[in-house]
């Protein structure tokens, strides 16, 4: 029988520092390993352990996989010690991805907080591959300080994409920052909504617009409230749920939330799916 716990050897091909504590690694798995935007993998730091990550690279690129990692725990810290040419392990992919067929012809709001923009990047790149299918892609991203902003070199490129806008905010005022200041929900204050004001350019129709949210649990909680207030439908708000999956296979129990396994029923879950939980985030 197939061993569901075996990691596939993957070689580190490139390491890029994104911020003081966030790094993007490019891996080349020795066996075929593909994923859909929103799915996650279990990444092994050899001898240290595994942790779940949603890749940050384009799912349409199948030879390599990028994962953008913040140094917060044992596994992520062990990875910071690794070099180009070193070998890690990857298992997966697991869980569901975004239901992208459902995004056709719609406005897509992408809300990222901190390292939460990393998993969303794989979705953004998948959307860019087929940008004509979507009415609008609005990327709204909040980081703690200007240094903490990840994909600094990519954001201006993304802004040049057709039908795409990029809005940034940082939590506290900082020298040399002329952009918005405040937690990420401030980027929703002036969200143009077709149902309220018809703003010139690319308004949002709250009835049909889709929101994809990823960030710390506290951010998900408040963005969820704000989007529902704006008139987004619960079934159109996709959250990346954060739990510490040990197996990713619907067995170990660590990610259970009520009768749901975040590793199988998630990690992408709509506000409608989690509505019955008192505090799902």
């Amino acid at each position: 029988m197939k061993n569901i716990y075996r990691p596939i050897e993957s070689v580190i091909e490139d390491i890029k520092q994104e911020s003081p504590n966030i790094t993007t690694y490019r891996f080349r798995p020795k066996e075929p390993l593909t994923f859909a935007a929103g799915q996650f993998v279990e990444l092994t730091a050899p001898g240290v352990g595994e942790a779940p990550f949603t890749p940050s690279s384009n799912p349409n690129v199948t030879e390599t996989m990028e994962i953008t990692i913040m140094d917060v725990g044992t596994v992520t810290h062990a990875l910071t010690k690794m070099k180009v040419g070193d070998t890690v392990g990857i298992r997966g992919p697991y869980g569901n991805g975004y239901n992208m067929a459902d995004f056709d012809g719609k406005e897509i709001l992408i809300m990222g907080g901190g390292v939460g923009l990393a998993p969303l990047r794989s979705l953004i790149l998948a959307l860019f591959d087929d940008i004509d299918r979507y009415k609008k892609v609005s990327i709204r991203y909040g980081a703690r300080t200007p240094e903490d902003v990840i994909f600094k070199d990519l954001l201006p490129e993304w802004e040049k994409m057709k039908n795409t806008e990029v809005l940034l905010t940082i939590d506290e005022p900082a020298p040399n920052w002329s952009g918005k200041v405040g937690v990420v929900t401030v980027l929703l204050d002036d969200l143009p909504l077709l149902t309220t004001v018809d703003v010139e350019g690319l308004p949002f129709s709250a009835e049909t617009a889709v929101a994809c949210v990823c960030g710390p649990p506290i951010m998900l909680k408040f963005v969820n409230i704000a989007l529902l207030e704006k008139g987004f439908k619960p079934e159109n708000i996709y959250h990346s749920m954060e739990r510490n999956m040990s197996c990713g296979l619907g067995k170990c129990g660590h990610c259970m939330m009520g009768e749901l396994y975040i590793c199988k029923d998630g990690p992408v879950m709509t506000a409608a799916q989690v509505a019955s939980f008192e505090d799902p985030f």
Partner: peptide, 20 residues
Amino acid sequence: CFLLVDQRAEGGYERTRNWD
């Protein structure tokens, strides 16, 4: 329920499954 734990072992590393 269980927890997967990795450690060094002969010839590389091993992953154990432990009651949690």
